Simulated scan of single mutants.
Amino acid sequence: MTTTTAVPLRLPANAAGLTTRPLTRDDAGAVTTLMGACEQQDVGEVLIEEADIVGDWQRPAFDLASQSVAVLDGERLVAYAEVYKGRWADAAVDPAYRGRGIGTALSQWTRALAARDGGTLVGQPVPGESPGERLLESLGYRALWTSWVLGMPAGRAIDPQPVPAGYAIREPRDEADLRATWTVNEDAFLEWSDRERSTFEEWTATVSRRPGYEPWQLRLMVDPTDDVVGMAFVVVSSGCAYVDKLAVRRDERGRGLARALLVDAFEVARDHGGERSELSTDSRTGALGLYQKVGMQVTSVWRHWAADVTPDHVVAPD
């Protein structure tokens, strides 16, 4: 039986009285509340919901017990961090607890955990011009790409895009449809994303196994032979329809399929309470202009900051 060596989080002296432990599944609500408070402070709106957290935590390659840490003031969660596959970090500090060195300690912890798990680069997205961005820059991180959250102004909709003759948009019917959709999604995103291919099980953890999932949320574009050639995944939360994934097979591009999927996803989501429409894209995709052209406007800017990891970052257990 193999065990993973724990990575201790060493808090600064002016964080005396706070305690640490790994996160548990029961902490999903508290992490959502913490991240929501940070988003409200830094970008003026709450984007996260608990299903996002639960979906991420149920990915097969993620071990919450050995790849996360919580910082508590009594029973209250005031900061946390996690690192997925030695590369992808998330961390947050309650706005009321900033300025005590907790964020710096979490940065050191994420590097140490990434080093333990064989990573060579670790980073995370943070809001542009936020305290988190300034902290990471001061710690030697570098910005790798920029992301934008875009929304459709109230009362406006994307002009309809006809679906080509013989093509259709439908829901998935079975696992074969899900696997075909996963393939289209992964193939498209791996054209520009510097990561390894997600397994089907990892993909379904945040799509069809995401808490609250219903088949109408996954929109499949099929060709005249009923092969899946495009997909969109839409989530409705607090009256907002958010397109979380949108992809079209490379050989099927230039037919207006992506725009047709986008229009369809927002229309279907509206029938399920999504009165507002949002999505995100980043500078690696080159898609910002496309979304702006259909009338969407940038509502917040995020940047992915990352730092090199070396074996020197490994922290010996206490």
Rank of each mutant, 00 (worst) to 15 (best):
G44E: 03
A79P: 01
A105Q: 04
E39Q: 15
P95I: 08
L23I: 01
G103T: 08
G29K: 05
A79D: 01
A65E: 06
V69A: 07
E82T: 14
T20P: 06
D26G: 13
L18I: 04
A15V: 04
A81D: 11
T104L: 10
D42F: 04
L47W: 10
D52P: 04
F62Y: 15
D42Q: 07
A16T: 06
A79I: 04
D63H: 14
A89Y: 05
A89N: 02
D63F: 00
V46I: 15
G55H: 01
V78N: 01
Y80C: 12
R25H: 11
L77C: 08
M35Y: 02
K85G: 04
D73Q: 13
L9T: 09
L64E: 06
T4I: 14
G86P: 10
Q108E: 14
D73P: 01
R87K: 15
F62E: 03
T4C: 03
S68N: 01
W88T: 12
S66M: 02
A105Y: 05
P95F: 03
A6Y: 00
D56K: 14
A37S: 13
P12H: 11
I102V: 08
D26P: 00
G99L: 07
R25L: 13
V46S: 12
A28W: 00
P12N: 07
D27T: 09
G36F: 05
Q58A: 10
T2L: 06
A13N: 05
G55T: 04
D56M: 12
S68A: 09
L34P: 01
V43R: 05
R100D: 00
T33A: 15
S107R: 13
L18E: 00
T5Q: 12
A92Y: 10
A79F: 02
T2M: 06
L47G: 04
S66H: 14
G86L: 04
A70V: 09
A81I: 10
G36H: 07
E45C: 09
A30D: 09
T2K: 01
V54G: 01
G36R: 12
A15L: 03
D52E: 11
V54R: 14
A96P: 01
I48Y: 00
I102W: 05
